[in-house]
Design a protein around this nucleic acid. Structure first.
Lengths: 245, 245
DNA sequence: CCGCTTTATAGTCAAGGTGACTCTTAAAGA
DNA sequence: TCTTTAAGAGTCACCTTGACTATAAAGCGG
């Protein structure tokens, strides 16, 4: 509603205040594995445990603004670079006891990063690190749940959107794009079929002029593509086994 | 993060407090039209305008709990009935100026109601009314945006989940189920093809034993079905024209 | 009582998308 | 040079889907 049911003369300060924070599930694909950006907690509760980066929403900020600011701080990337990254609201976590110290409502975001720049903690930020998904222990607070929700959401959106290109640099090969799907879904995809699907979907990718990149990798050099105009996939690219998210 | 970056000795009350509310987009299908539950505002701002029902999250509540409580209050339905309804977090709206009086962060929910019970305002609730979607003027605050987001989300989820049954009573005909799709999507679907798709998707619906319902409507009486075990549709039931959400 | 309308339900048929494969090309590495 | 690896072209059968036709069973207006 937006406080339209508040009694007349309602004083905001009379209520138990809610702290509002953002939590970020920053994901990338590196070396054929899904990686997450995590910070190590220095103080109680959960001292020494890994946690998702995040912070308070400041009085003048929207949650989106706060999330992008935190993303820049934690990754050490420039604001201009961060402005181009895919950042999307995931869900809001509001369980009353999710933080033992006080009532904290957290708006969680998912961010997708192409190349994996090793984060250099900017300012007061605790050092953030890329960790392979699943190799960290239990995360602090309800961050295990948030991270699992983010993974599930991203996996589902790969099926019916062009989101996968958000994991790739501006120019990429179809092999790199396929690697995104295989890594997030944890399956192997048939190369020719994947290629056919991507190329026949209008607006998914567009070929880059010029010669194929002279790759440093093995095998025949691949052609380069850029992300296309399309945002959704019709029909979708369903993951094998017909298994739901 | 959950306040893990708060300076030591941080006092919650020193910050500008955020009020946290829930807003509900309660949808139903009645007489071949999508309807929304709205309340008329009695006070400024937006006095006289229609708004989504909602209210404050109380100190001991999660947003989900608050949403279900508000849903019961506004519809006049019993808590037991409301417990069976589909209620799902939509998105959180955090623009600093979305409420001119104070800083309000609102967690929006989408609720799907089968039969359209005329709401009887319980307690202090302003009288809520079912309005055909789109016939109301501009809603208060950013509720137009919330409602549009809810509509879009529901339309998209009809494609790849079994959500449509949430609009139907416990036992329903395939015609009623098809009506849900047609109403939410605003298209006409081919009856035989829709029937085939639903019946060949394992777990979407299950036939009810006994004779077809002796309907009061025209035409051949239809068989009754219940919602099945499945929650997702693989492959999905895509809307015509291949148009994205 | 007799068609007419309406809705449910059973089929048919062709086009398109997909999964499973094969084969060729072009690089790197031993 | 031979092997390995990956890109990229192409084939074929199956399944799903969209478009349609046909039949059954109710209510309704004369």
């Amino acid at each position: 509603m937006t406080a339209h049911r508040a009694p007349e003369g309602y004083d905001p300060h009379a209520f138990e205040p809610f702290a509002v924070t953002v939590d970020l599930a920053v994901l990338t694909v590196r070396e054929e594995r899904l990686h997450v950006l995590l910070v190590e907690r220095g103080q109680e509760p959960y001292a020494g445990a890994w946690a998702l980066p995040g912070g308070f929403v400041l009085p003048h900020e929207s949650a989106e603004t706060a999330a992008r600011r935190e993303l820049a701080e934690e990754t050490g990337l420039s604001e201009a670079t961060v402005a181009g990254l895919h950042l999307e609201q995931l869900r809001t976590y509001t369980e009353p006891d999710r933080d033992p110290r006080m009532r904290v409502v957290s708006v969680a975001f998912t961010a997708l990063v192409p190349d994996p720049p090793e984060p250099r903690g900017g300012g007061d930020a605790a050092q953030a690190r890329w960790m392979p998904y699943g190799t960290h222990g239990r995360l602090a607070f309800d961050h295990d749940r948030i991270l699992a929700d983010a993974h599930e959401r991203v996996g589902a959106k790969l099926e019916y959107t062009c989101l996968a290109t958000a994991f790739c640099p501006p120019e990429f090969t179809l092999g790199e794009l396929r690697q995104v799907y295989e890594t997030v879904w944890g399956v192997e995809l048939d190369r020719p079929n994947f290629r056919r699907k991507v190329l026949t979907t209008p607006g998914f990718v567009q070929a880059v002029e010029g010669p194929p990149r002279l790759t440093g990798g093995r095998g025949k050099p691949a052609a380069l593509y850029r992300a296309g105009e399309a945002t959704t996939l019709h029909p979708p690219l369903l993951r094998p086994e017909g298994r739901p998210a």
